[in-house]
Amino acid sequence: MNTVDTCGMSCPQPVLMTKKSLIENPEGIDIIVDNNVAKGNVQRFLKNAGYNAAIIEKGDVTVIEARK
């Protein structure tokens, strides 16, 4: 699965990176986020774009698995 690492990027980069990567990999990607703002924004974007999002907490970061 393709992974997008958004750690340390300021608004709205995490969502932009997610959007861009999903255009290239429409079946799904994993997105790594390191703060709640990015997490919330990416989740909201995925919902609006019709993807399911599974959340896996991994210490300092969160992995969001976006699947059709």
Partner: peptide
């Protein structure tokens, strides 16, 4: 809350 994010996200993501 962000006064630039509102218009920006609308243009970028229709959010």
């Amino acid at each position: 809350m962000c006064m630039v994010g509102g218009i920006r996200d609308m243009i970028l993501f229709k959010d």
